[in-house]
Design a protein around this nucleic acid. Sequence first.
DNA 1: CAGTCATTCAATCAGTAACTTGACTGATTG
DNA 2: CAATCAGTCAAGTTACTGATTGAATGACTG
Lengths: 224, 224
Amino acid sequence: MTGPKIEIFEQFAELARVLGQANRLELLEHAAQGERSVERLAQLTGLSLANASQHLQVLRRAGFVRSRRDGKRILYRLGDGPVIELLGALRRYAEHSRAEVRGIVSAYFDRLDSLEPVSREALLTRLGDGSVVLLDVRPEDEFALGHLPGALSIPFADLERRLAELPKDTQIVAYCRGPYCVLSFEAVAALRAKGYDIKRLEDGFPEWKAAGLPVAATVDNLFP
Amino acid sequence: MTGPKIEIFEQFAELARVLGQANRLELLEHAAQGERSVERLAQLTGLSLANASQHLQVLRRAGFVRSRRDGKRILYRLGDGPVIELLGALRRYAEHSRAEVRGIVSAYFDRLDSLEPVSREALLTRLGDGSVVLLDVRPEDEFALGHLPGALSIPFADLERRLAELPKDTQIVAYCRGPYCVLSFEAVAALRAKGYDIKRLEDGFPEWKAAGLPVAATVDNLFP
DNA sequence: CAGTCATTCAATCAGTAACTTGACTGATTG
DNA sequence: CAATCAGTCAAGTTACTGATTGAATGACTG
């Protein structure tokens, strides 16, 4: 081979191998929501503590996440390279090439929301003229760690109880963790059934943040 | 976990695992230049025939390459999903996050070409007004399988012998297989030492083609 | 239609990866 | 300063991956 290519390819391959594990991808998505302790991440993914810890270290060595100590806890958050962009490229490739992905997507998602999602750009314009209400359906702690400015936080679990907070005369745009997060799909399905005018944001919070758009946070790192 | 995520992550991880092997990435880059037989790809990468064949089948199952039979030969070419985009995202992430990659790049490449490369957009404009000569330094067979329109083919190995074909008064833009292909770097270094005004195209042939820009081919599939 | 060529398949082996368990470290708390 | 808590480390098991070898397929060639 000509020159330095083998080494470069080996570096690329090492990074790709780190993403080649479903549990790590899941940890990564959770870390992308905001800082999280190892224990919390282990809970969220259903992994054992030691296993989660080891996976997180693999992710850290590859730069996909960073960590810092806070008292006895160690908090992991997304790394600062173009991680979301890389995951987005992987997702787009998968959607194009893997019938399984398209199948799962259509089975779970299209059934719930046959309408076009709202793009980031469209949302920005409509937020400007106040013609839309933004709804964050992620759990409260994820909202606290960071959310789209002006978003209303009603975790999906509380939605039924808190319907009164939602307008019937203004369109609602719901979002959650990412393009494949079911929460926003189910919120759309549930609220539409009740007569609300609601759509889904195409991406989730991490994509919004990665695009360099403004983010609001209620706490800094209160909920690990 | 909520819903269909685990399955989706497993699909993503499967794809990432396929890219998690340097030999496969190398095969992929060669297939991205144009259709190639298994034997040729094995030669180019230095892999055994059976090994190359198996890796190519892994790549095919993931949709990164396609194959067709031509007589006794089986020809592999790049798949038609956003493969180049995915590899580009991987490359950009690696450049950002891996000191090793930056190190290798600067050790081998920056030494050879400290000047800014020419972007696709800039090249397009300058091709329009005829203020630039395009130079393809890849081997002849890769040129034959596809090249940028109007490019002059002088394989790097023949460069010394064929200097007469190059203008001294017009700027030259050299390109080869991709951002890390050494050929164009070395061509730039060699010709600049001889007093030519020469720069490097930022990307290579596959990126150009993937961007949907026009491509010329001398033969269809004559050189497998 | 036997021989040859290009590729794939099947079997094997060595090396690596994922998960578990239990011990260890480092910071807080009584 | 001992006890506790959060996380890491080290060792072991099991499963998978990559490479090699030789046999098997499938298509052309005389």
